[in-house]
Amino acid sequence: MNFYDVLDWSIWKTLAKEVKVQVISQLLMYFVSPLKKVSHVRYKEFALDGIKCQTFEFQIDGEWFVFIPGNADTILGWDAGISGIPITAWHDKLENETKQVKKIIQNYQLKTKDDWSTFINESTSPLRKKDMPAMFVQKYSQPIGTSYIGYFDLITGEFNGKNAAFQSIEKEFQAAFSAPKTFEESLTWQQPKTLYEKNKFYAALNQTKEVYEIYTHQLCSFHELKEQLNSQVYELLDEDQWEYVVGAGSRKLFRWGSMVSCDTPVQKEFVEQMIAHENMFGLLFSSQNNGWELTDSLNLKGEKWERTGLSLLDLLPQASYYRSRHSFDRDEQLSPLDYVYRKAIIIRSE
C-alpha cells in the first residue's frame, strides 16, 4: 500500500493508535520546516453530530494545529434549500430589520419555503465532488497582519509569552487597556472584546480563560499575506479544502446538524454550545458574525452582520457551505477587525 493511501480517512480510521503515531511522526518530519519547532503532540478524538475522528493536535512554533485525514470523492456545496431545517428556524419574528435584511427581503421576499430555499441555495457554494488531501490546519483562525506573541492575564496583570515582542508594544497596550476606577463602575463595566492600534498590536479577549491574547500587527493585503505564508512554507485553504475541514463533507447545512431554532432557552443554549464546540476534526470557528475568513480565492467565509431574530438568517454564516457576497480588493490593506485567516500545510504526494 502506498504511504499516502493510509492518509485517506477510510483507511486512517482503521489503523491502530501505534501505527498512527508512526505515521504522524513521519509527516511532521517531512512536511514541517526543520526551522520550526514542533511540540505538545497529542492523540485526540473529536466528535460532532455522530462523526468521529481520531487524530493528533500539536504546536508549530507555539501555534496549535490539527492533522486532518484526506477523503476521496468528498461531496461539497449545497443545493437542498431548507431541507431538514425546522419551520420555526425560518418562520421566526423579525426583530431587527437591518439594511442587509431589507436588501435580502427586497430580493428574495423570504415569506415562503420556496423563497427561503432559493435564498439558501444562492448563499452557498454549488454542489460538487472533490478529492481532499490530508492537511495540517491551524486550530484557530487569526487576524490578518498579526503575529501571536502571548497572553495578558487579567487576574494577575502579567504577560506570558515572547517578552521582547511585548515590550515593543507594551506602552500602547497599557494605554488601550483599562479597568474600572470605582466600585460603581465595576458593577456594569465590561472588558472590550478587542483592543487594536494599527501597525502596533491587536488583542482579543478570551473570556473563558480571562486573558487577552496578544498579537503584534502590521497592515497587510491579501497578496502580502500569501507571500508571507509562502515564505513560511504555509498555505491558505482553498474553498474546497475550507468546506471540507469545517463540515467533513457531511450532507447537512451546519456542521452540528439541523438544530437551528432558538425559540426556547434550551434550543438557544444547545445551538450556542455547538457553535463554540470543536468540530469533528478539532477545529474552532468564530461564534460571532463579526468578520470574514479568507480562503485562497475571492470567496470569503463567514459574515459581518447584526442579529435579526430570524434564527436561520442569523446562523446562516455558520453553515459549512456558506459563501459571502462580500467582495474585497486583493491589493487593499485589510483590517484585523474584519478579516481572519487560517494557516495550513497541504500534504501532497507530488
Results as ranks from 00 to 15, higher is better:
167 Q>L: 08
173 F>M: 03
164 A>L: 12
144 I>P: 01
101 V>K: 00
141 S>N: 11
146 T>A: 03
97 E>Q: 12
125 S>C: 02
121 N>R: 13
104 I>N: 02
134 A>R: 12
134 A>T: 08
144 I>R: 01
134 A>C: 13
156 T>R: 11
158 E>M: 12
147 S>F: 04
113 K>L: 04
99 K>I: 03
105 I>L: 06
116 W>E: 04
113 K>W: 06
165 A>R: 14
169 I>R: 04
133 P>W: 06
119 F>S: 00
129 K>R: 15
177 F>T: 02
108 Y>W: 15
108 Y>E: 12
108 Y>N: 14
119 F>N: 03
126 P>N: 03
128 R>M: 09
114 D>E: 07
122 E>R: 15
181 K>L: 11
120 I>E: 02
121 N>E: 09
135 M>F: 10
148 Y>P: 10
122 E>I: 00
170 E>L: 03
102 K>Y: 03
166 F>P: 02
118 T>L: 15
169 I>T: 01
107 N>H: 13
121 N>H: 11
108 Y>P: 11
173 F>N: 04
186 S>T: 05
98 T>K: 07
126 P>K: 04
149 I>P: 03
168 S>V: 08
167 Q>P: 00
191 Q>C: 04
122 E>F: 00
135 M>Y: 08
167 Q>Y: 06
178 S>L: 13
147 S>W: 05
195 L>H: 10
168 S>E: 15
98 T>N: 08
158 E>T: 14
164 A>T: 13
175 A>N: 09
171 K>V: 01
125 S>T: 09
156 T>L: 10
183 F>C: 01
136 F>Y: 05
108 Y>I: 12
171 K>A: 04
193 K>F: 06
130 K>T: 14
141 S>W: 02
161 G>W: 07
123 S>P: 09
142 Q>T: 14
148 Y>K: 15
148 Y>M: 15
110 L>C: 05
115 D>V: 06
126 P>T: 04
136 F>A: 09
157 G>P: 03
112 T>H: 08
128 R>H: 07
125 S>A: 10
108 Y>H: 11
180 P>T: 01
150 G>P: 09
171 K>C: 00
153 D>H: 08
195 L>K: 10
137 V>Q: 12
105 I>P: 00
184 E>D: 14
117 S>W: 02
134 A>G: 15
151 Y>E: 13
125 S>W: 01
125 S>H: 03
135 M>T: 06
176 A>V: 01
119 F>R: 07
109 Q>L: 10
113 K>R: 12
195 L>S: 08
153 D>Y: 07
142 Q>R: 15
109 Q>G: 00
130 K>M: 15
138 Q>F: 05
120 I>M: 06
145 G>F: 07
182 T>G: 07
154 L>P: 00
141 S>I: 08
157 G>K: 01
127 L>N: 09
173 F>R: 06
197 E>Q: 15
157 G>M: 06
195 L>W: 03
186 S>R: 14
169 I>N: 01
189 W>T: 00
178 S>E: 14
148 Y>G: 08
123 S>I: 02
107 N>M: 08
188 T>F: 11
97 E>A: 12
168 S>F: 04
99 K>E: 10
135 M>V: 08
129 K>Q: 15
144 I>F: 02
195 L>R: 13
182 T>E: 09
146 T>F: 00
169 I>D: 04
